[in-house]
Design a protein around this nucleic acid. Sequence first.
DNA 1: GTCAGTTACGGCCCCCGTAAGGATC
DNA 2: GATCCTTACGGGGGCCGTAACTGAC
Lengths: 324, 324
Amino acid sequence: MKLQQLRYIVEVLNNNLNVSATAESLYTSQPGISKQVRMLEDELGVQIFGRSGKHLTHVTDAGNDVINISREILAKVESIKAVAREHTLPDQGKLNIATTHTQARYALPDVIQGFMSKYPKVSLHMHQGTPSQISDLAAKGEADFAIATEALHLYNDLVMLPCYHWNRSVIVNKDHPLSKKGSIDISDIAKYPLVTYVFGFTGRSELDQAFERAGLTPKIVFTATDADVIKTYVRLGVGIGVIASMAVSDELDSDLVKIDASHLFDYSTTKIGFRKGSFLRSYMYDFIERFAPHLTKDKVEKAMMLKNNDEVEKMFKGVTLPVK
Amino acid sequence: MKLQQLRYIVEVLNNNLNVSATAESLYTSQPGISKQVRMLEDELGVQIFGRSGKHLTHVTDAGNDVINISREILAKVESIKAVAREHTLPDQGKLNIATTHTQARYALPDVIQGFMSKYPKVSLHMHQGTPSQISDLAAKGEADFAIATEALHLYNDLVMLPCYHWNRSVIVNKDHPLSKKGSIDISDIAKYPLVTYVFGFTGRSELDQAFERAGLTPKIVFTATDADVIKTYVRLGVGIGVIASMAVSDELDSDLVKIDASHLFDYSTTKIGFRKGSFLRSYMYDFIERFAPHLTKDKVEKAMMLKNNDEVEKMFKGVTLPVK
DNA sequence: GTCAGTTACGGCCCCCGTAAGGATC
DNA sequence: GATCCTTACGGGGGCCGTAACTGAC
């Protein structure tokens, strides 16, 4: 059994059982992969992939188990390399962060700036995507961290740590009737056409829940994946906006009126996620702590040992998180 | 990085940094190992072993981390092989049990007999040893299961599940004064020369504790690692014996008088231990359940996910175990 | 002087890449 | 017919084993 054989079967699955595509993605030849896969199957005495004629059609039960274990092995191989780099060049390395527009635009810039000035030799990569793309990148090990508010809970091989709470504000044009009201309630919002986040993004579920609880149906006329687009359409008079409070700037958005709505919705929790069992470089621990000061190296290591994310939630039950 | 390189460094450590001995134990040449170790070090850019001149003197910090991860990788490689065998030959395989005399002689025979008749194609190996040897075998993966009462708690990469409680009986010759007493207390025992287990064996610590609690010092004149030897010396009149109740047979030991002493000592708990993260064959789950009926596959899998053995103890806190 | 690890060298196996063949859609 | 995997074959690298060398106790 060779490590590359394990790499091959994992990548073949990642490429939807297309061996040719796999070969290209690994910069090697297709027959090479085919052969190694069959050699591994011969050695183990089990089919990993089901075949109809010469096409791979599905993953067998045994194959599924084998591939899952292989993934763990390959993750640990990466850990060994990370350990080695940590001992030779503690301040050098890579940091791949997968995150959403909201985080990248409003929550991360300060942290990133501080981080980059302390670790000039760490090459930082940001990948923007949908919450599920983000989780996927982290689960496959292509990103070190996933930072988002939604959808992270689906992956059980990611550890997800709560970073901060946030809530929403309503934004309206200055001439809008709501701009004069001191405080608003949920029925005020339901009266007007609404512009907000797309489902599955940036705490959208808490928003829907609040309306449902109140027995109201909001008139959502436009949804976007980021606050900047939402603000643009609010300015055009398409409707009133509901966005994360941190996305409204006093200076840049002085033409809009911001009305706090944190009493109307449950708070959302932004989380940072990474692969269970992976070795974290010291600068990674530092990054986490810069982003969420309560997540010290100690706490993170403890959380990594828990068996699932329900346990992690329990662990942080009593902790008061920062609010943004 | 090659799997064999990882195997080499792990085995070099297992052989006390002696490369020649390692080569012999792996049936390969010494220069081959030396070279692969250095190649791995070169690739990682870190020394794994510290050297003074040409001798390996110690393991570096980095090397320690690397070797620990390597062990996990190699364990998972074994898991892959086990998965494969499980899918091809579910009723064939090996089962290596490391245990003490007491278990092998009194607790296991019934279980083994039933197991062997159900799984005639599983080749069963029993390794008898001291509790710490047993733990060691299991931790290194040379035994699938460790079954013992003592010393298992020291290894944190073993999962240890409680199997049954047991307590002690006093055995005396028929003409001994105690043979007439209906019930005895701890001071009765302290009066006479005592023959019992060696320290570190078969729940010896609970025995010592009971005397200490009572402020008494037993006159221990002879210790042995197994009940058969103890019984022999009791017969010779060397002293009275204190052994596990299950080690006294009504038929075979009819020349001795057995006096229950379970009210005098804390019960001991015999445990079964195996490597965390290893893949257990279906017949292994069956073996566990035959030995300890409350340990169903479900329960065992749950326990494997816990982070340490304190958690395991918590999990089984409310469960009433069989008594032997 | 003995033991232990390193260096040097040669053989062999295995892995990979190219090219051609056959199956499936 | 296009796509995709398999088989066949040749080249090259790397792993292993033997043998000789060198440093340490």
